[in-house]
Structures are given as structure tokens and as C-alpha cells.
Design a binder for these strands. Structure first.
Length: 572
RNA sequence: GCGCCCGUAGCUCAGCGGAUAGAGCAGGGGACUUCUAAUCCCAAGGCCGCAGGUUCGAAUCCUGCCGGGCGCACCA
């Protein structure tokens, strides 16, 4: 189904015959033909013969007659391949009857843990959580669709010293409104009020400290209050996930506290393995190869000098749990780039301890920051962090207004639905459509713009196709013959056939902008096709063929956007 | 000081060993008695940060600079 792979498989034996060993034919799309193979040039040096002679001989051995209508030698030694129309049409037909659009289920399914989102209890979610949540959810959707066992891990910040003050604030008799704030989901006010008291009130500070001790000591009354905080926060987070169309559920909350019982054993085991070293009163692991500012080895502080456990301990416990108990072989950490070094150290230490080794491996799926129009980290006017919900609501409001303006035929309910799908889709697509390693500038005009590489453009292409079938009251016949006489039809067929290859690559590198770029190319190619090739006005077999192309395009767009976590409204 | 990410059209970004470096936006010109113009078509726009090196071939790989961002011991 994957044309590039098919051509590669055909050319590889021919190259192997000429070279006397396996050679990657390096097949790629070409401007001069449909595909080109570049391997003859590199091989020429290796075998000490002119590139064109090598290419000619490869050509003699290659069996391409059924796939290609033209195969020619070009330039210094390129092989230009033109795919035969009937071969391409055959592949499109195969796609049309494929429920998975040509994408195979993973040959060797794995258990994959995707660690993402991770907001803090009793704190508002802000833009800083957006990228982790959006990218992580796309990873979970994609790998799940490919047949892997995906375990979503929402590593909530639900433990630590701040909980002393938060609990004290909750029960403070002078603060009858605190519980109210909490239940209303006004976490920002709640946290800030607690913080403010902590900063100025010595008595409150002392109570908070005692409360931390009680919490860590397992005091039942304190734990009950702590659970209240956690539950209220989780309830709130779920409403945000619902708004964002994120697949995280209550089952996926695995707070830091859930590893508490494992921290002691983890440290003990590190000690037993001889990996622990005391430094300035703290118990540390020194994974090799990491040096700090002063040139000395950098420690991973597993137990602090005050006896408390540091986050490296939690991260190590989580790894041990995930590989050992859950049987995961792929651990994804969708966390910002600044934390790269921390995770590399944790992975190294886990490797030393024997908790992380082949076939299991951990990958830091890092990402850059979201910037404001001033090119600096996005901040609210007051200089604080920007509330995620506020951002999403603004996106929905803008998109809803746009939908009403562009299509007055939409009723109130439908306009609201479209506005939500488009607004949320725009935010997520802006995040997923550029290289995640880079920072990106959040620009309302651009991401809600209806032209260019944006979610609305893709959604529009989809809804336009749906409207064809709605209007005509017909369905595509998957077994209809495919004819590709027009260049625009051929171009569309090539894009459709390329879906599997892109999905397969993204499953490995988790570079979702490749999938986004592919979908954009598909939608753009479709738009050209749609402009030049009448569908419903065509007759007989041509009409049937074009209906199949339309239907396939819609299905690929829908599936592709689904994998990115973006909805596809039937009308816009 | 060490390490990581990033410098490509005016702007936002693809491309990361192959032929003439691609899109979108903005700006210019065109196409609606519409299978949804939230669209399409055409033209214009580039010392790919700089300098070396490897290679038949470098935006792409290596080295060194320059510029921007971030991280480097008890907060996660």
C-alpha cells in the first residue's frame, strides 16, 4: 500500500545484485517524475565505476514493469520513476476497501506509557500545560490506533511541602470562602490566597509546617483534607480535558503520591547496588557524564538532607514500576525541553540500576515554549501565567463569531459546535504543525486564519467533501473502478497512497508536524482537484471514480485529524 | 565554564546528503449565473547567521565563531 516502500523493495534486489551487498535505493518523491532513486551515485564511488553505468545496470536487473510506465536514467545517475496509472489506480482501489486506510496494525505491539499533561493540584492549568497535553494526547491516540497497549500517565503534582499551606488555608476558620473557591474550580484564587498568607503570617507558616509533617506521617484527618483537594482538582482538570478534546480520564491520574510507598525500596535498592553516595547530607546517584557549573559530577538527589525524597526518587520509582510491574517497553515523557538534562540523568541512573534496559527505552519527547507576540514567553498582562481555560474560551469565541459570519445558514447550536471544533482545533493544530523542538509564537490571527496550514483549512476541506455526498444523496462505491486521467487526479492519488508511510514514520519519531504537513498537502491537493475536476457533474465511471477519491480524502483527513486530536465538523 | 534547543523569502514555517531550496501569510495581478470563493490560478520575492572542512555533490554531516532562548545540588 505504501508506494515508496513498494518501489524500494523492487529496487533493492537490483542494487544488491550490482553492489554485491544490500543497498538502500533511496527512493523519494521527485519533481521530474513521480519518484526518483538516488542510490546509484553513492554506489558508483564504492564500486569504482561511473554512476551512469551503475544506474544502467541496476535498471537492467530491476523488475518494475508492472509498477512503472517509464523508468529512465537522468542526469549524473538518477533513476526517474513514473508510476503506471493502472498500478496507482489499483492501489487507490485497495485503499478504498481498507478500513484502516492502508495503515497496518503494529507487527510487534508494545506496552507504551505516555507521561503527559501533569498539572498541579490546587493550581490552575496554564499555557505551560498546553503543549504537553496536546502532544502527549496525539502520541497516545496514534500509538493506540496502531495497536499498541497505551497507558496514559497523568503525573499529577499532588504531593510536597505546598500542601501544608493549602490544607491550612482550606480549614482556616477565617476563610469560609476557601472551600467554596475550590469547589467552583477557582484554583488560582485559592492557591494565591494560601500563598499570600504563607508569605506574611508567621503563625500560618508554622501551622503549615506542622501540617506537612502530619500529611507525611499519614494523619488520617489531614489525609482526608488532602484527598478533598486532590479530588476537587481532578474534577476540574477533567472539565478542561473535556473542553480540549483530550482523551485523559480519571483512570489516568497517577499522582506523585502514588509512588510514595515505592520510594523507600527504590533508595534501598540503589544503596544495595552500590549506586548511592552521600553528598552534603543528601543521598545521591552520580550517573556518569554529567557535570555541573563547577566542573564536578552532577548528582541526582534521591533523598534530601532533611530526609525527604526529591523528585528524582519519584521519577526513578515510576520507571521501575512502569518497566517492572506494568511491563512497558517504551516510556514517553512529554515534558518541556528545559528538563532534558534532568530526564537524561534519570534514564542513565535507571539504566545503571537495571530498571531500564533493552528492549525497554525511555524517550524525552521535548518541546519548546509558547511565546507571545513580543517573542518572549507568553505572559498575562499582569505578568503572570496565562490561564489555559481563558485561552481556549477565547479561541472558541473567535471561531464561533467567524462561523456565524461565514455561514449564516448555521443555526445557533451548530454554530456553537463548529466554533468549538474550529477554535480548539486551531489551538491544537498551531501546536502540532511546527517542529515541537522549536518555540512558537501564539498568534490568534494566524492560527484562526482560514487560509494556509491551519486547522480550519483542513476542516473546511473535510466538510466540503461531506457536503458533496449530502447534496447528492449518494455514497461512494468502494469497488468502483478508478480512473486517473487528469493530472489533478493523479496528484491526489499519490497523496492518498502516502498516508501509511507518514503515519509509520511519525509513530517512531513523534514529529507530528510531519503528519500535519501531510494532511495540509492532501487538503491542498484535493482543493486543486476539486477546482478542476467536476465530481457530481461528471458522468458514469468518471463520476464513480471521483466519488471514491473524494470519500477517501475525507476519510484520511478525518482519521489524520483524529490522531492529532482535532474534530471534523460535517458542515462549516 | 559545561550542556541542550534554535538562526532558511518582509512575517510564520517546511526541507536535514542529491538535480533549479519549498509552502502559507502580507503585498501585486486574475477567476464566483458556485458540485460551499472559509476556495483556486498567475507573477514577484533567498550571500539557507558567518568562516573553514569532508564529499562527485552540503541548507542538510564535522569543526570553530556570531546572534537568540534555556538548563546546570536538595522546587517539580
Amino acid at each position: 500500500m505504501d508506494l515508496e516502500k513498494l518501489l524500494t523493495d523492487r529496487l533493492a534486489p537490483a542494487f544488491a545484485t550490482v553492489a554485491g551487498e544490500p543497498v538502500d535505493p533511496v527512493v523519494r518523491r521527485s519533481q521530474r517524475a513521480d519518484f526518483q532513486s538516488d542510490a546509484a551515485l553513492a554506489l558508483a564511488r564504492q564500486v569504482g565505476r561511473p554512476p551512469r553505468a551503475v544506474a544502467t545496470e541496476v535498471l537492467r536487473h530491476a523488475e518494475l514493469a508492472d509498477l512503472c510506465s517509464v523508468v529512465e536514467l537522468s542526469g549524473p545517475g538518477f533513476l526517474n520513476l513514473t508510476v503506471a496509472d493502472d498500478a496507482l489506480a489499483g492501489m487507490v482501489s485497495a485503499l478504498a476497501t481498507s478500513a484502516r486506510l492502508g495503515v497496518p496494525v503494529a507487527a510487534a505491539p508494545e506496552t507504551v506509557v505516555v507521561d503527559y499533561s501533569a498539572p498541579n493540584v490546587a493550581k490552575e492549568m496554564h499555557v505551560g500545560h498546553l503543549r504537553s497535553t496536546v502532544i502527549g494526547d496525539a502520541a497516545a491516540r496514534l500509538l493506540e490506533w496502531l495497536g499498541h497497549r497505551v497507558l496514559r500517565a497523568n503525573h499529577l503534582g499532588d504531593w510536597g511541602t505546598p500542601f501544608g499551606m493549602l490544607i491550612e488555608h482550606l480549614v482556616d476558620p477565617g476563610e469560609p470562602g476557601a472551600a467554596q473557591e475550590l469547589s467552583m474550580g477557582d484554583l488560582d484564587s485559592f492557591y494565591k490566597a494560601a500563598r499570600a498568607k504563607f508569605d506574611v503570617d508567621e503563625a500560618f507558616r508554622e501551622r503549615s509546617r506542622r501540617r506537612v509533617v502530619a500529611l507525611q506521617g499519614g494523619d488520617e484527618a489531614t489525609l482526608r483534607l488532602w484527598r478533598l483537594l486532590v479530588e476537587q482538582s481532578e474534577r476540574y482538570f477533567l472539565t478542561v480535558y473535556d473542553l480540549l478534546d483530550v482523551t485523559l480520564t480519571e483512570r489516568d491520574f497517577h499522582g506523585e503520591s502514588s509512588y510514595n510507598d515505592l520510594l523507600g525500596p527504590v533508595v534501598e535498592e540503589l544503596d544495595r547496588l552500590g549506586l548511592l553516595r552521600e553528598s552534603a547530607g543528601a543521598a545521591c546517584v552520580f550517573p556518569p557524564g554529567f557535570v555541573g557549573r563547577d566542573g564536578a559530577s552532577l548528582p541526582l538527589i534521591v533523598r534530601k538532607s532533611d530526609g525527604g525524597y526529591g523528585y528524582p526518587a519519584t521519577d526513578l520509582a515510576a520507571i521501575r514500576h512502569r518497566t517492572g510491574t506494568l511491563g512497558a517497553t517504551r516510556l514517553l515523557y512529554v515534558v518541556g525541553l528545559p528538563q532534558r538534562q534532568h530526564f537524561e540523568m534519570v534514564y542513565a541512573a535507571a539504566g545503571q540500576a537495571g530498571w531500564l534496559g533493552p528492549p525497554a527505552r525511555a524517550e524525552h519527547v521535548g518541546f519548546g515554549s509558547i511565546l507571545g507576540s513580543d517573542g518572549r514567553m507568553l505572559r498575562s498582562r499582569a505578568g503572570g501565567s496565562v490561564k489555559l481555560v481563558g485561552l481556549l474560551e477565547e479561541a472558541i469565541a473567535r471561531a464561533t463569531a467567524l462561523a456565524r459570519e461565514r455561514n449564516p445558514e448555521l443555526g445557533e447550536v451548530e454554530a456553537a459546535e463548529v466554533g468549538r471544533a474550529v477554535g480548539i482545533g486551531a489551538v491544537k493544530y498551531a501546536d502540532l504543525s511546527s517542529d515541537r523542538n522549536r518555540d512558537y509564537v501564539l498568534d490568534w490571527e494566524r492560527m484562526l486564519s482560514l487560509d494556509g496550514n491551519t486547522a480550519p483549512y483542513l476542516q473546511y476541506a473535510y466538510s466540503r467533501i461531506r457536503s458533496i455526498f449530502r447534496r447528492a444523496g449518494v455514497a461512494a462505491q468502494p469497488d468502483a473502478g478508478i480512473s486517473l486521467a487528469e493530472p489533478a487526479e493523479r496528484a491526489l492519488a499519490f497523496e492518498l497512497v502516502g498516508f501509511a508511510g507518514v503515519v509509520g514514520a511519525v509513530a517512531v519519531n513523534l514529529e507530528f508536524h510531519h503528519l500535519a504537513g501531510y494532511l495540509y498537502r492532501l487538503a491542498a491537493t484535493f482543493s486543486t482537484f476539486y477546482e478542476r475536476c467536476p465530481v457530481l457533474r461528471a458522468d458514469g465511471p468518471v463520476r464513480e471514480s471521483r466519488l471514491v477519491l473524494c470519500d477517501l480524502t475525507a476519510r484520511v483527513l478525518q482519521q489524520g485529524l483524529y490522531l492529532l486530536g482535532i474534530r471534523t465538523p460535517e458542515r462549516m
